[in-house]
Each structure stands twice: as C-alpha cells, then as structure tokens.
Amino acid sequence: MELRFTNELIEWRGPAPFYFIQTPADITEEIKVIAAAKTYGWGVLHTNVTINTTQWKTALIPKDGAYLVPIKNAIRLPQKLELGQRVDVRLSFDL
C-alpha cells in the first residue's frame, strides 16, 4: 500500500534538533487502519519513505493524534530541505 501527501518540515528542539513531517488528517486515518494490524510497542509503525529521489526505511511516530515522519540530516541536507518548506512525501507499507 502506498500513501502520498505534502506537508511542511517542522522541528522539535530537544537536546539536539530533530526534523519531522506530520501526516495530514486524511492520511492519518488511513495509517491508523494499517497500524491496527502492524504496529508494535507504543504505536510505532515501520514504513518506507520516498522524498524526491531518496528512499529509506524508518518508523512513523504517533504524536497528538497524527504521525510524524522523522527526517534525518543525512536525508534533509542533501535534498536541501528547509524548515517550513512543503515537502512531497510517499509512504509505502508492506502488507
């Protein structure tokens, strides 16, 4: 299964900055259906993410009724992703 959306890159400032893209409400509802069958532990859900030409495996993190897609600097910097920039995201799940 594959889901696509566009949302802005946000930052969570802890001891080190972390970057995320939050899933919009309609996509979140679709992910919750998948998560009901596939999630482990505290609701984390494995996925494959594609942004531009870069693809990687990560885990979606549930937060405030949505999911956060973590964006490491190893992805963010080569793709020239800036805070507040709207980014096209493709998520795929092994069902």
Rank of each mutant, 00 (worst) to 15 (best):
E29A: 15
T58L: 07
I31H: 02
Q22N: 08
V49R: 03
V44N: 06
A35C: 12
H46Y: 09
Y19V: 10
I34C: 01
P24Y: 02
N7E: 14
I10H: 02
Y19W: 12
Y40R: 14
L9E: 07
A25K: 13
F18E: 08
A25R: 11
A25M: 05
I27E: 07
T23K: 06
K38Y: 06
T23W: 04
I31V: 13
A37N: 12
E11R: 12
E8Q: 14
T39S: 14
Y19E: 10
A59D: 04
T39C: 10
I10W: 04
Q55N: 14
R13H: 02
A36N: 13
P24K: 08
T47A: 15
T50N: 04
T50S: 05
E11F: 00
A35R: 14
D26C: 02
W42N: 10
F18K: 06
D26T: 07
Y40F: 12
V33C: 00
Q55E: 14
G41R: 10
V33E: 13
T54I: 10
A36L: 11
N7D: 15
A16V: 13
A59Q: 10
V44M: 11
P15R: 14
I27L: 10
L45Y: 11
V44W: 00
T28A: 12
G14P: 00
E29M: 04
R13T: 00
P24C: 07
K57S: 14
G41W: 00
N48Y: 04
V49H: 04
I34M: 03
I51P: 02
P24A: 06
G41V: 00
T23P: 06
G14D: 10
N48S: 13
A36P: 01
I51T: 06
E30Y: 00
E30M: 08
K32N: 15
Y19N: 09
K57R: 15
E8W: 05
T39D: 10
Q22D: 05
K57I: 11
G41M: 01
I34H: 06
T39N: 11
Y19K: 06
A37E: 14
L45P: 02
L9H: 10
G14K: 04
T6D: 01
